[in-house]
């Protein structure tokens, strides 16, 4: 049996999405539909945080799936399927950044309009004291979005993949086509910047007991396994 086929079988056994993609490669139309359903929310979330615009994220996510289908015959599983999918997404997002650099007027700056036009400190002071927890949640969501928008594109991608896709440094390095060391440095700078930007809100949240102060017992706990209560992620309304 050829080595490539053996790798495909091993990867398919390890990652069910690889098996699904191999069915897509073999022209199974239902497999493609299942693949879209399985990944649409995750992909849309990542694209939204990368480009900062819901409609554009929607179009880009669709284009990612179309490219997956068009290039299905070239698919040879060597890593998790999501690595391949998000590599395509990364390339498309880069095209958007390049287009925005050429046409700066078309760029959507999250801080250009509405509540986000204010500095987060003003936003917090003017609206957060309200008693409504839902309102507080939404305001915090906007502050965090504002902070994310201050990161550069590469930092934002690394953070989004690490946070939402729970990807390892190696997987992020594969997607961004950089070294693991570069990912380590990128994430470190991004998180230091976020720490600076969000410091006042983090303090308030910690004082109000919304964020845990405990550290993980060991490295395997990681930051994704908090020892205390955790704020519920805000879920955006579906848009039609």
């Amino acid at each position: 049996m050829p080595a490539q086929s053996q790798t495909s079988i091993q990867m398919a056994l390890r990652d069910p999405d690889v098996a699904l993609m191999l069915r897509v490669r073999d022209d199974d139309p239902q497999a493609f539909e299942e693949l879209v359903r399985r990944y649409q929310d995750r992909l849309l979330t990542v694209m939204y945080h990368l480009v900062g615009n819901r409609d554009e994220a929607d179009d880009l996510a669709q284009e990612v799936f179309l490219r997956v289908y068009r290039h299905r015959k070239e698919y040879h599983p060597q890593a998790k399927f999501s690595t391949w999918l998000f590599t395509i997404a990364h390339h498309l997002a880069q095209n958007v950044y390049r287009r925005r650099q050429r046409k700066p007027e078309a760029q959507l700056d999250l801080s250009d309009s509405g509540l986000l036009a204010q500095q987060p400190q003003e936003l917090w002071c003017t609206t957060l004291p309200g008693p409504d927890a839902q309102l507080r949640h939404e305001e915090l969501s906007q502050v965090v979005q504002w902070a994310m928008a201050q990161l550069n594109e590469r930092q934002r991608l690394a953070v989004v993949l690490n946070k939402f896709e729970d990807m390892s440094y190696q997987e992020i390095a594969d997607i961004m086509q950089i070294s693991v060391k570069a990912v380590k440095s990128l994430l470190s700078r991004a998180r230091a910047q976020l720490r600076q930007l969000l410091a006042p809100y983090v303090q308030m949240e910690m004082r109000s007991g919304q964020l845990p102060r405990a550290l993980p017992h060991n490295a395997t706990d990681g930051p994704h396994a908090p020892a205390g209560s955790q704020p519920q992620p805000h879920t955006a309304e579906p848009h039609e």
Partner: peptide, 26 residues
């Protein structure tokens, strides 16, 4: 502690849900 608390603040970021028509449209 600060880094970890900041990381948890990212849980406040919205998570998108594709509209019901997304798959069909694609």
């Amino acid at each position: 502690e600060q880094l970890q608390a900041t990381w948890q603040m990212l849980d406040f970021l919205p998570q998108a849900h594709a509209p019901a028509s997304f798959t069909e449209r694609t």
